[in-house]
Computed example of a mutant assay.
Amino acid sequence: MANGDRRIVIAGAGSIGCYAGGCLALAGREVILLARPRIEAALRQGGLQVSDLEGRTHSIRPEALVVTADPAAALSQADVILVTVKSGATQDMAALIKAHARPDAVVVSLQNGVDNADRLRNELPGHMVLAGMVPFNVVQSLDGELPLRVHRASDGTVMVEDGDAGLVGLLDVEGFAIEAHGDMKAVLWGKLLVNLNNALVALSGLPLATELADRRWRLILADQIDEALSAMKASGIEPARIAGLRPALLPKVLRLPDWLFKLLAQRMLAIDPRARSSMWDDLQRGRPTEIDDLQGAVLRLAEKAGTQAPMVKRITALVRAAEAERLGSPGLAPEQIVAPAGRRST
Results as ranks from 00 to 15, higher is better:
Asp183His: 07
Thr210Gln: 13
Ala42Thr: 07
Arg276Ser: 13
Leu263Ile: 07
Lys98Asn: 01
Arg121Gly: 00
Arg246His: 12
Val173Ser: 06
Glu325Ala: 15
Leu124Arg: 03
Arg320Ser: 02
Arg267Tyr: 01
Asp118Glu: 14
Arg149Phe: 05
Gly328Ser: 09
Glu161Gln: 13
Arg56Glu: 13
Glu174Gly: 12
Arg285Ser: 13
Ile16Gly: 06
Pro310Gln: 08
Val160Thr: 12
Thr157Tyr: 00
Arg149Lys: 11
Glu145Gln: 15
Leu229Gly: 00
Gly22Pro: 11
Asp52Gly: 15
Val158Cys: 06
Leu301Thr: 14
Gln295Val: 10
Leu26Thr: 05
Asn116Trp: 00
Gly55Val: 09
Arg56Thr: 14
Glu290Pro: 12
Trp189Leu: 00
Gly55Met: 01
Pro334Ala: 05
Val160Gln: 12
Pro135Lys: 03
Pro37Ala: 14
Lys86Ala: 11
Leu301Cys: 07
Leu299Lys: 08
Arg7Pro: 00
Gln284Ala: 12
Gln295Phe: 12
His100Trp: 06
Leu188Ala: 06
Gly21Lys: 08
Leu294Ile: 12
Arg56Asp: 06
Leu34Ala: 07
Arg218Ile: 04
Ile8Leu: 07
Leu249Asn: 08
Val173Met: 01
Asp293Phe: 15
Ile225Gln: 07
Ala333Asp: 06
Val139Lys: 11
Leu206Arg: 00
Gly205Trp: 09
Ile32Lys: 07
Asp292Phe: 13
Leu43Thr: 11
Ile97Phe: 01
Arg276Val: 06
Gly88His: 15
Arg344Tyr: 04
Ser154Asn: 05
Glu227Asn: 10
Ala2Gly: 04
Ala265Asp: 00
Leu124Glu: 08
Gly205Ser: 05
Ile39Gln: 03
Gly182Phe: 04
Glu238Cys: 08
Gly169Arg: 13
Gly46Met: 09
Val107Gly: 09
Ala177Asp: 07
Asp214Thr: 14
Val173Gly: 02
Gly190Tyr: 01
Gly113Val: 12
Gln224Arg: 13
Ser345Pro: 05
Ile60Leu: 15
Ala265Tyr: 03
Ala105Ser: 11
Leu96Trp: 14
Gly156Arg: 02
Arg218Ala: 05
Ala231Ile: 01
Met128Ala: 11
Lys262Gly: 08
Asn137Asp: 10
Ala105Trp: 01
Asp70Glu: 14
Met184Tyr: 06
Leu48Phe: 08
Ile16Tyr: 05
Thr68Val: 02
Tyr19His: 10
Asn137Ala: 09
Gln77Pro: 03
Pro340Ile: 15
Gly55Cys: 09
Gly190Cys: 04
Ser235Gln: 10
Val67Cys: 08
Arg314His: 15
Leu256Lys: 01
Val139Pro: 01
Ser76Lys: 05
Ala341Ile: 08
Val319Asp: 10
Arg276Gln: 11
Leu33Ser: 02
Leu82Glu: 10
Pro37Trp: 15
Leu269Lys: 08
Ala2His: 10
Asn3Glu: 14
Ser154Gln: 02
Ala73Cys: 01
Gly88Cys: 03
Glu290Ile: 12
Leu130Phe: 07
Met128Pro: 03
Ala199Pro: 03
Lys233Trp: 04
Ala131Glu: 02
Ile291Gly: 11
Arg6Asp: 02
Lys86Arg: 12
Pro125Arg: 10
Cys18Met: 12
Glu335Ile: 07
Arg215His: 00
Glu161Met: 01
Glu323Arg: 09
Asp5Phe: 03
Ile10Leu: 12
Pro37Ile: 11
Val134Trp: 03
Arg152Pro: 04
Asn195Pro: 10
Gly22Val: 10
Arg7Trp: 04
Glu335Gly: 14
